[in-house]
Amino acid sequence: MSKRINAIDLNVYYGDFLAVEGVNIDIEPRSVTAFIGPSGCGKTTFLRTLNRMHEVLPGARVEGQLLLDDDNIYDTAVDPVTVRSMVGMVFQRPNPFPTMSIRDNVLAGYKLNGTRLSRSQSDQVVEEALKGANLWNEVKDRLDKPGSGLSGGQQQRLCIARTIAVKPDVILMDEPCSALDPISTLAIEDLINELKDTYTVVIVTHNMQQAARVSEKTAFFNIAGTGKPGKLIEYDETTKIFSNPSKKDTENYVSGRFG
């Protein structure tokens, strides 16, 4: 598990509107990369291109290449469903399936893919995924209870367990802590630091302290104005982005002068 991501001259469109322009980025495997920038600058749009999730909107398309290791996920022969099994997504707000038990939430990916597991295989998947999400000890005695009955932080870790249960190579996180309290946020950040030992992790965050805490590299996106495309302004080691950025726009953003 864990793959390198390369975007090469990637443009993202919604119909005729160019939403993100000319992204070139190389994301290392087994690492955490943070996307930062003001609202509307294209960072979440670009994140969603990494598993073709943006394509659920009519008219969405990309130009350029996006490679997982050496495979272009936008090749015409590639099935988007296959891509999404390799590149999992954790969303801004915890979204366990409300009618499903904790156990069935973890196994949801297998059921959606039509994969049949024996009871012993299911038990193993559930335990491993919940342990991987640091949730097993808290829920092991109530696996048949609804996932919606957990606290917000536990629900987000359940969603992470659901994501890692199908053994992806990459985990995308779109502001995974924005709806959580500080204690739950710390638990998710600790988990992210553990996940990078196995997965390539990419996180969008508006919390610059969080980016500094969890990521090795940071990408700063910005936008010139309403109706203009978002652009990748600077991408470097996180310590450099926050202490000695190369671009004036980056310095202005991380120092709080705008955004």
Score class of each variant (00 low, 15 high):
Leu135Trp: 00
Gln154Ile: 03
Ala187Gln: 15
Gln155Arg: 14
Ile183Glu: 13
Ser151Leu: 08
Cys177Arg: 08
Leu195Asn: 03
Asp144Trp: 04
Asp141Met: 10
Asp169Gly: 14
Tyr199Asp: 06
Val166Arg: 14
Thr200Met: 05
Gly153Ser: 07
Met173Leu: 15
Glu189Asn: 14
Glu194Ile: 11
Gln156Ala: 00
Leu135Thr: 03
Asp144Cys: 08
Thr185Asn: 10
Gly149Pro: 01
Ile188Asn: 01
Ile160Asn: 00
Gln155His: 12
Ala165Thr: 11
Thr200Asn: 10
Val139Ser: 00
Val126Cys: 09
Thr163Asp: 09
Ile160Ala: 03
Asp169Ser: 15
Val204His: 05
Thr205Ala: 12
Gln154Phe: 01
Ile203Thr: 14
Ala165Ile: 06
Val202Trp: 05
Ala129Tyr: 01
Glu127Ile: 07
Asp174Phe: 13
Gly153His: 02
Gln156Pro: 08
Ile192Gly: 02
Leu130Cys: 10
Thr205Ile: 06
Ala179Trp: 13
Ser178Pro: 11
Asp197Gly: 13
Ala161Tyr: 02
Asp181Val: 11
Pro176Val: 13
Pro168Trp: 07
Leu195Ala: 05
Glu189Trp: 07
Val202Gly: 05
Trp136Ser: 02
Asn134Lys: 14
Gly147Leu: 01
Ser148Arg: 15
Asn137Leu: 06
Cys159Asn: 07
Lys196Tyr: 06
Met173Phe: 13
Ser178Asn: 12
Arg162Lys: 12
Cys177Gln: 10
Ala161Gly: 07
Gln156Tyr: 08
Ser151His: 12
Val204Arg: 02
Glu194Pro: 07
Val170Met: 10
Asp190Glu: 15
Pro176Glu: 14
Glu128Lys: 15
Pro146Gly: 04
Tyr199Phe: 15
Ala161Phe: 06
Val170Ile: 15
Leu186Ser: 14
Leu135Glu: 00
Ser184His: 09
Pro168Thr: 05
Glu189Asp: 15
Ile192Glu: 03
Gly147Ser: 00
Lys131Trp: 06
Val126Glu: 11
Lys145Ala: 15
Ala179Met: 12
Leu150Asn: 12
Leu172Cys: 06
Leu172Gly: 07
Pro182Ser: 12
Arg157Pro: 04
Leu186Arg: 15
